[in-house]
Design a binder for these strands. Structure first.
Lengths: 224, 224
DNA sequence: GGGGTCTTTCAGCGAGGTTTCAGCTTCATT
DNA sequence: AATGAAGCTGAAACCTCGCTGAAAGACCCC
């Protein structure tokens, strides 16, 4: 789950980025309007957190630019001004939610989760449960339908969620890499393979099939 | 312990907010009905103080909205009109208590405490019976079921209460920070860790489990 | 002001998660 | 079957995070 944080206040970023990452998102940061706009045009983010007071280009213009270009990803707007007029303007420009500074980190997280849930509901109804495997966002753990809990580390959780969100699709190692880490890393390593091994050991071998030379596919195992 | 004060009278807020904070709650304020509704949908407040005479959306509608959305947090209603009809209407809409203006701050505090106690008892027969750990608000101390008393300092008490109210959930350090202190503090310190250590030493190691990189979970220890 | 307690900071330690590495297995192609 | 490429996996290295004892700071009560 990949997210762009468009915010220039360093202190805020320093607090927010780790919190978002703890919540299981891969976070890129853009510190001015132009860069934010370009980034989101280049990459299909799952959600964008957009400060209105960015240097070089106003947040509202950036947002309008995306919507004009038919970019439909959910956008949560941050602003320092809590006026009725601005709220209306922002929502009309195509924002999905609106949070005033100062805010509790937890509140932003909750709103992000709510917006994502809504947008996921639009696309694919139902919570994150596929064929007898459930993911619990709150405790960052998984469970089989019979109730057996499965403890996951942070990376394993993100990996599994990525698979479940794209169940049935082939996910290349490169794509998994990009979803799990910030796109600075040009890994030629086998981290992904290693984690897949550990994940398979925990949830069972059959959920993740390898497509040689292409990637991996997540599917419910055959009933024997 | 997090609380939403939905009230538009500035003078009242100016008096009430500090009083509530002094009583150990973290307080957010919402000054109109729509915002109050959204806030409480986004954040799991432990309690809400709701004025009926809010601008933009009537308090009763807001309350009905929450209950229709299966939001079960306790709500204490403030109102200027003291008629039995309104009282009935409000309680039927799902309020937990009802205070008429003008009131003494102390009275409101007492009702809040009472409502919280009731709701804690409702949700979890648990702080008491569960694993044999009880919290005593009056003496700010804890006790094991066998009667052994445990002396707690103020912060330890609030920390433990926060854990017991959210038993089974993962609480990140950041979230605990925000619940224990006003959200001015951008601590990169390890206060929380230090207090967790001392708390564990007092109540026993097994109650609070660490989820590396995510936070802590409060649970009754296994019976050996 | 002095003794006590509560709270916070600091620094070193240790555990656990993550990544790398090396050797092995599997698969496709000839 | 031989070969090479791709993937698997156990073990070791690395690194980060949380733990904890001690000391400093804040606060309160005499």
């Amino acid at each position: 789950m990949r997210l762009l944080l468009a915010e220039d206040d360093e202190a805020l970023v320093a607090g927010l980025k780790p919190a978002l990452e703890r919540a299981g998102y891969a976070v890129d940061v853009a510190t001015d309007g132009v860069f934010a706009q370009l980034s989101a045009e280049a990459i299909a983010y799952d959600l964008i957190v957009l400060d209105l007071g960015l240097p070089r280009r106003n947040g509202i213009e950036v947002l309008r630019g995306w919507r004009a270009a038919r970019r439909a990803m959910p956008v949560v707007v941050l602003t320092a001004r809590d006026t009725w007029q601005e709220k209306v303007e922002v929502l009309n420009a195509g924002a999905d939610d609106y949070v005033c500074k100062p805010f509790h980190t937890e509140e932003l997280l909750a709103r992000i989760a709510a917006v994502l849930k809504r947008s996921a509901a639009r696309r694919a109804p139902g919570p994150l449960a596929r064929g007898g495997l459930r993911l619990d966002e709150a405790t960052q753990s998984a469970a089989l339908d019979d109730g057996t809990p499965i403890e996951l580390s942070s990376i394993e959780f993100r990996l599994l969620r990525c698979f479940m969100l794209h169940a049935g699709q082939v996910l290349s190692q490169q794509r998994l890499n990009e979803h799990l880490y910030d796109h600075a890393t040009d890994h030629d390593s086998n981290v992904i393979e290693a984690h897949i091994t550990r994940l398979r050991r925990k949830i069972g071998r059959d959920w993740i099939q390898t497509r040689r030379g292409q990637g991996y596919v997540f599917e419910a195992p055959e009933a024997p």
